[in-house]
């Protein structure tokens, strides 16, 4: 049964995996930290839906890009920490390159359109 998606979420879908991987380059983190980091570093523009975060984490783990372990958090609560694997690092590199290519391309298209509109 397909769910209704909002435009932001759709946008996120392709990039959430990449952002999660990116967040974990700085060090292991649990779900809450990952969400917070993404929100903060996007200037609170991107709100990470928990409904997509956890399935995404499990999916990445299934593909072998993340590994996980249970550990106490800073305030002594048990949480599941995620770590980037070597395969995950390679994947992040691929994703980042692809992302850069696409944004550059979209930027070129949109830049020309803007110029055309101004003249």
């Amino acid at each position: 049964m397909p769910e209704k998606t909002r435009p932001e979420e759709e946008m996120l879908k392709g990039t959430l995996d990449m952002m999660i991987l990116h967040t974990l380059v700085l060090g292991d983190a649990h779900g809450h930290t990952i969400a917070t980091i993404i929100e903060r570093s996007s200037g609170d523009v991107l709100q990470v839906e928990q409904g997509s975060l956890y399935p995404a984490l499990y999916r990445l783990e299934d593909r072998g890009w993340l590994s996980s372990y249970w550990n106490p958090t800073e305030n002594n609560r048990r949480a599941k920490f995620y770590r980037l694997t070597a395969a995950g690092r390679k994947q992040l590199l691929r994703e980042t390159q692809r992302w850069q290519r696409i944004t550059r391309a979209i930027g070129m298209v949109m830049g020309e359109a803007l110029q055309g509109g101004e003249s």
């Binding site: 649990h30 779900g31 809450h32 930290t33 969400a35 928990q50 956890y54 499990y58 299934d62 958090t73 305030n75 609560r77 048990r78 949480a79 599941k80």
Partner: peptide, 28 residues
């Protein structure tokens, strides 16, 4: 993924615990 299929129940329990930890963090 066959493994995933047969370990659904365990994963579900793990997810529940993970999510409640998440909520607790958020509340804090």
């Amino acid at each position: 993924n066959w493994l995933r299929f047969f370990r659904r129940r365990r994963r579900d329990a793990e997810l529940r615990e993970e999510m409640s930890a998440h909520l607790a963090n958020e509340i804090e």
